[in-house]
Every structure is written in C-alpha cells, then in structure tokens.
Write a protein that binds this DNA or RNA. Structure first.
Lengths: 124, 124
DNA sequence: CGAATAGTACTAAATAGTTAGTATGAGACG
DNA sequence: CGTCTCATACTAACTATTTAGTACTATTCG
C-alpha cells in the first residue's frame, strides 16, 4: 500500500522507540515489549516492521532463525525530522512560538533555559 | 463517523488557522482562503467545519443567510494541547529534549533563549 | 520420524481521516 | 411567478493507517 506520511506515524513511532532502546531486535523482542503496555498481535508488529523497512527506517539482516532488525537512521535525525514537521505544520516553520508554549505550559525554569543556552554557546 | 484523535488533525488545523485569522467566518470565507493555496471543494470545507463544531472547536450562530462560525476555544489553548500531545507522544512527556532539538536544528540563538528566559522570570 | 513451535509472506479487513456529490430549500431577481 | 444562486444536510466513497488472520516453511524435540 502506498504511504503518504513522510514522517513516522504514531504506531510506527512506538515501534521505533523500542528499536532504538534495544538497538538490535527481532519482531519477537518488539512484540513482547509492546505487549507489556497493550494488547497487540505478533503479526501486527511484523507488518509494521516490514513497512518501516520499506520506508528505510529499519534494515534487516538474516542472522539465523529470525530476521534481526536495526535502525537505519539515527534516532536524533528521525526525531529531528518530526520536530521540523511539527513546527512547519503547526507554527508555519517558526520555532519561537513553540518555545514560548514549552516555557509556559511545561515546567521549564529559567535555569533550564539558561543551561540550554550555555550548551548552545559552547557549540556554535 | 466516530473520530478518535483528541487533538486537531492536519486538515482540521488548516481550517482552524483560517478561522483564528479571521475570528468570524462563513464556510465560504474559509473555502476561498483555502482555494488560494490548493484545490478543494466547498462541501469539503463544510464537512470539516461541521466536524469541528461537533468536536467543540467551532461554534456557529445563524446570523442571516449563512452560518457564521467562530472559535469555541482560544488559539493558545488548542495549540498548547497539540504541543503537549506532541511532547507526550514523541518525548514521553519531557520537554527538555524537544528544546534541545529546537536549539540545534532551528536557528535559535542564545539571545533568543535568554529573552524567553527573561520573559519566564517576569511571569513566574 | 512426526507433532509442536516459531517464523515469514501474503492477504484481508477494520478504523480513522479526508474529499466531494446529490438533493433540497430559501432568497434574489428579471 | 419562474428561474438562478447560494446555502445546508445527508450520504457516499476514497485514501491512509492499523490490525490481524491464514497458509506455508523450517526447526526443534520427544
């Protein structure tokens, strides 16, 4: 089936989170991790992981019995794309308004911000 | 049809952006604004606005000929909910990693951050 | 060996979201 | 007054995403 979304969809993200945590996984690994949180079928996880492979988020290599999957792209890059997509869609591409929301609605102190600012200065 | 998403979907957001810009709109107003950007049918816009009314994002009052819609919730509140949802889904609820992404991937200077921090200090 | 187990591929279908057509009615207007 | 225009309600259908069943193959193990 053709997929439209360029960034990860909700369920794809859930699976990628598990993959990034473990770095190297089988379908069973992901299945069992997800099962702890919610009911899901093994084949559902398999289907999603196949889609993720087609979309170049995962790569697999046949080790012995089961396929072994690993991330095809670093976490930071993928999440970064999601952030950029969100900023584009919701804030028409400008990050400042999002910052303001974060400061107002989450408990971010001035100190948090200063620390980030410091980090920014160190790596210009 | 039953809707699942609690926050605004992509197309719902596009329409709400137009509504917030104008504050008081008819279906035709929104339709014509959207048309400038992409092909869309009048009835499509109408359907979406009806859904938005059901979801309590819009309220309408029959003024004379056409229904007049206005936002049922302030922009900041709705966008804030979207930000919170995003932070929950992508960052498991913690805002700091999102901040780091914003700093690294968008062109946010240390000065920007300091200004936000100042704003934060003024309104604790 | 032969049954149970674990894995994959292929396929189907349910759910969510988006788009738009058709019927219908009320007011404008020649 | 009959017709044109614009608006709505209802409905249908398409696309995207998610979920999972079934058939088949290889491996394990008593």
């Amino acid at each position: 089936m053709r997929r439209k979304s360029t960034v990860l969809t909700q369920q794809e993200l859930e699976i990628m989170k598990v993959v990034w945590e473990h770095d190297t996984v089988t379908v069973r690994d992901v299945y069992e991790t997800l099962l702890k949180r919610r009911k899901v079928a093994y084949t559902t996880v398999m289907t999603m992981m196949k889609i993720l492979e087609q979309k170049k988020y995962l790569k697999k290599n046949q080790t012995d019995r089961a396929h072994v999957y690993r991330p095809a792209q670093p976490r930071g890059k993928v999440i970064g794309a999601m952030v950029r997509d969100f900023v584009n869609r919701v804030f028409n591409g400008s990050a400042e308004p999002l910052l303001v929301h974060l400061v107002e609605e989450h408990d971010l102190s001035a100190e948090d911000l200063e620390e980030i600012a410091r980090l920014r200065k160190d790596r210009p």
